[in-house]
Design a protein around this nucleic acid. Sequence first.
DNA 1: TCTCGATATGTTATCGTTATCATATGGGGC
DNA 2: GCCCCATATGATAACGATAACATATCGAGA
Lengths: 332, 332
Amino acid sequence: MADVARHAGVSAMTVSRALKDETYVSPATRERILAAVDELGYVLDQAAGSLSSKRTGFVAALVPSINNSNFSDTTRGMSDALAKRGIQLLLGFTDYSIENEERLIEVMLKRRPEGIIITGGTHSERARKLLNNAAIPVVETWDLPRNPIDSVVGFSNANAARLMVETLAKKGYRKLGFIGGTTNRDTRGDDRRFGFLEAVEELSLPADRLVSFGAPPITMLQGGEAMVQMLDRWPDTEAVMCVSDLSAFGSIMECQRRGWKVPERIAIAGFGNFEVAECSVPSITTIKVDCYGIGYAAAEKVCEDIVAMREGGSTTPQTVAVDIEIVERESA
Amino acid sequence: MADVARHAGVSAMTVSRALKDETYVSPATRERILAAVDELGYVLDQAAGSLSSKRTGFVAALVPSINNSNFSDTTRGMSDALAKRGIQLLLGFTDYSIENEERLIEVMLKRRPEGIIITGGTHSERARKLLNNAAIPVVETWDLPRNPIDSVVGFSNANAARLMVETLAKKGYRKLGFIGGTTNRDTRGDDRRFGFLEAVEELSLPADRLVSFGAPPITMLQGGEAMVQMLDRWPDTEAVMCVSDLSAFGSIMECQRRGWKVPERIAIAGFGNFEVAECSVPSITTIKVDCYGIGYAAAEKVCEDIVAMREGGSTTPQTVAVDIEIVERESA
DNA sequence: TCTCGATATGTTATCGTTATCATATGGGGC
DNA sequence: GCCCCATATGATAACGATAACATATCGAGA
């Protein structure tokens, strides 16, 4: 920066000002500075800048995985909202493990993010402590935690599953099964299973038809194998709810391969409204979640709180329950 | 850090050393320091650290999108390889635009990454200049550029498409079509189309059956609509190659819906070996690319060069052509 | 003409680490 | 018992920007 300053015949401070174009710099000077910047190929060092200004322009976000298109949509939402404000997303993948989450939180905090977005409401004690100490805005997503750390943008996975059970029951299906991943790492999957169980019990339907197969996120192929297990153990099952559209799709394909008609022989429902649910034959009855919107709203909330904190205020904890919606299609 | 030092009765320098555990710190002192760190909830400030040490521990990576599971696999590969070395991934999404890429490169460079991984071999002039000035290891992926900037981990998309055409021709299909996105932003998609055209011309097959539909990445549903267009304009088409498995899957589903048997009425091939290709009925003939491996290898190469540069050396430009492979399944 | 405020720029100190050099201590070989 | 080296720690000066305050210039209004 000193080089640029010399080139433009000004002080470093003026260069700094010209590059953030907020404060007074005369048009002529600014032009000279930008020319010098261009000529020298100078690129601002934000690490130094943030050390001085105490604003890193980072927001950290932890998601379980981006292989799952739900979370990749959420990630896109966050990225879009942050990019609009010139904030850099620091992304971490927990692989559905709260131990990894704790580790990643610590790693992220070393970069002094001005806010952090995490997935779910289940965290290690130490993770909560780290976040508290950091004194930055926190937004939990994809869940409605009992004891939110700060703000929340999510929905109740258990309620969503309940809603699906009720929908299936209303359609006349009585013997319902649930297919999910081996657990207990995927807390959202667990919540869905829990909601499923509560709902079938409430309706006095059989509540033992559970197949867990594969580490979350359960894949299409694993979904297919789980379906085989399900009908092997409980051949008279009438409808199956899958923890995600991917496993639902895998189940449907496996049924097709074996000549089991969907939904006649067995009805199948998914979760998430992935594109494959709309496109597949038969199309998949599922629960629609505005994944992108969750990410976008969470990022907006974080930014809002960051602005408040920069101005010496504090966060305004707020819980936003996003709408979910049953999408009835051909598979159930 | 000064607080921690006081607490442990040592100097800040010793605290710094204890926290990176490389240099001499006596076990007793280290223990006292770690206790103080724990008690005070101290978290190292890496921004300050990297300013001083000139090592940010960042690697930047630009991918077109993570909605497409190919690039999300590549991203996972990079993330895994970097996390192993304690390096933080700075991720950016170009949305298939080289203008966005240029902008993002500039944004990323402000964070002083020690290396950068970009997708494809087509970049703006200014982007190339920025990367050159930055004097950091660069790895281009998912392509084999004519003029690599530095190192490369990729494959020829044109050759891959050629290979598919040859495979289809060998199976007896003569009238071949190609379905891709409206272009010309998705350079890899364009390369595939180009390879397709070259190959059909070489084999003296009709070379006009091209349908472009939807902005890349073309979705499942768009693939289905494109297929309808294809058979509308060229009803005698025997086989269609799609730019990705997603559009291939959409095509197949649309065919199923209309009662067109695949592959009897029309054969369909995809690209990328997404999970849906293996799982769908019929399963999809496709080209298998080791997406995760590309990301992993690219990250490893960057790290290797980073180490070399840290030791005062320079990068060792290297082009790795990863294997691709036709996977013959039921759809063609 | 003088003063004052708006505009434009400069000076200095500082952000929180780590590199580098300096210093202290202890034990083994001669 | 002396020297030297390995081990362990400390003091100081960066790293490259910006905050905060200081200064200079200019024109308008009193």
